[in-house]
């Protein structure tokens, strides 16, 4: 059985993990910042920011992918600027990261926002009265208190990134070893005759990855509760 596994399977799995990890790590700090802005700071344009953040959640993924192509493609407004700096997204694994990050972003923000809404602002007031500035207070009080929410956001974002298909295939296509993640590989092998065994492998690995991610989040959550978070 093992001998039958195409190297493309492992390529896709490895790439998916790489893309999802990098996307989560890059998007998470921004998601925390945006969630904090949306829940704790009153500023002009808050409604607009909310719309922009949540748009990828409701737009058809293909539309999001096409928008990314327009903006970050080699001829896009941002893409051509970044290309001068040597940063290329189009048809690269970095493009898959961008697509995955943008698609997972609203899920992360929402989980963190919920944690911020639920956390008692009284602790922040208490920290301020002791002499903690806004930034110190955020790092030492707010962030530890919402850590379970941040973790939940990270898991959701990671899972979304692993499963992201529409925006990724529209933006960076499905190039084996470059941009072919598990979902696009599954789609590819479904299109070719006798592709099913490979598809079954990919599906099995997908399920396994999801179970591991859930178990890891559960264990981490328990550890946090045990340590008073």
């Amino acid at each position: 059985m093992m001998a039958e596994v195409s190297p493309q399977v492992w390529q896709a799995v490895w790439l998916s993990l790489k893309v999802a990890s990098v996307a989560t790590v890059c998007a998470l700090p921004v998601a925390v910042l945006v969630a904090y802005l949306l829940t704790r700071v009153v500023f002009w344009g808050r409604g607009l920011l909310t719309v922009v953040v949540y748009l990828p959640l409701v737009l058809p993924p293909v539309v999001t992918g096409y928008a990314l192509l327009l903006m970050f493609g080699s001829n896009g407004y941002v893409g051509s600027l970044l290309a001068d700096l040597g940063i290329v997204f189009a048809f690269r694994w970095t493009g898959a990261v961008l697509a995955a990050a943008i698609m997972g972003f609203p899920l992360m923000v929402r989980a963190i926002q919920q944690a911020l809404d639920a956390s008692d602002k009284g602790f922040e007031a208490a920290a301020a009265s002791l002499g903690a500035s806004k930034i110190i207070c955020f790092l030492t009080i707010t962030l530890p208190l919402i850590a379970p929410g941040v973790l939940a956001g990270a898991i959701l974002g990671f899972a979304k990134a692993l499963g992201e298909f529409g925006a990724t295939i529209t933006f960076v296509a499905s190039i084996p070893g470059q941009t072919q993640t598990i979902p696009s590989a599954i789609y590819n092998f479904l299109q070719i005759p006798n592709g099913e065994p490979v598809v079954m492998w990919l599906v099995g690995i997908s399920v396994l990855l999801s179970v591991v991610a859930l178990a890891a989040s559960e264990l981490l959550g328990r550890w946090m509760r045990k340590h008073g978070l």
């Binding site: 009284g122 007031a125 208490a126 009265s129 002791l130 208190l145 008073g228 978070l229």
Partner: peptide, 13 residues
């Protein structure tokens, strides 16, 4: 100003 609140507000973590 050291504020003592009704609900103590000790940092739970």
């Amino acid at each position: 100003l050291g504020v003592i609140y009704q609900d103590a507000r000790l940092f739970p973590h």
